[in-house]
Design a protein around this nucleic acid. Sequence first.
DNA 1: CTTCCTGCAAACCTTTTGCATGCCT
DNA 2: AGGCATGCAAAAGGTTTGCAGGAAG
Lengths: 143, 143
Amino acid sequence: MAHSLIDSLEARGVRLTRQRRVLADILDNVGRHVNAQDLLTIGKQRDSSINRATVYRTLRLLKQEGLIDELDLLHFEGEKHFYEPRPRASHVHVGCGRCGAVVELESGVPEVLAAEVRDRTGFEPDSIRIEVRAICPTCRNTP
Amino acid sequence: MAHSLIDSLEARGVRLTRQRRVLADILDNVGRHVNAQDLLTIGKQRDSSINRATVYRTLRLLKQEGLIDELDLLHFEGEKHFYEPRPRASHVHVGCGRCGAVVELESGVPEVLAAEVRDRTGFEPDSIRIEVRAICPTCRNTP
DNA sequence: CTTCCTGCAAACCTTTTGCATGCCT
DNA sequence: AGGCATGCAAAAGGTTTGCAGGAAG
């Protein structure tokens, strides 16, 4: 698969161990935001020797390489962090403050903002995180 | 002072104790993002009996009332959370990934985004947090 | 042989909670 | 008296680290 985390790691000359492959593959394919515990649980199903410390160390590596983004989803679920491969298209996380449902919205807003930051602060944007707390339609209609 | 946290608490009928006044006042006037430890340290200078638990309980109260926003500033400083009175004008936090400098940028982008979220997801936005990781001009010019 | 990855367990750090005390109404 | 607010200490919960063993180059 092109642009996969594994490919990106390879391109950077990072040593690809079996466990790193498993964890990167999960992040690429799970299709939702996972936290460290999720990653450990799913990973263990494929390689039961995977350890918590390795999960965190791999996440740190991927973060340092700029290949994944770390989110806290507005603390809807406490202090856990959630991870996703750094998206090609900018998007926005919208979470319901009542029921915790999280949806993603693709939007041109992040690009607009990046330009604005560049022009008005002189800072060169590297990654943009946008999180919206909201009330979903279902919760709004059920008091 | 109009629109102060203390006024807002009063308007909501929340019991205003001495310690809550001190903490709210600090949040209103410190002019930067403070974390719980900062708040405790500064608060103790004015009322040495203030305890960590009270700081957290007061922060929780203010959060629940929607009077302050909780930020993590992209984990530049670990797991600490930072707080600021909920701003009248929407703004964006821009942090330098190299030196950690954080600047705020007032922008119309949050309002635009709120409208987009409403229109395209049906979720009703309540608060929007935008954090940008960037490289500041100084760091860009000093390799 | 050297370097880096891993498991294990302990340590860390921030935040939360249970309980007894005390203040305010 | 009743209802919160508070101090204290312990717990909780997620994340990080020191160290020894092992795999890879």
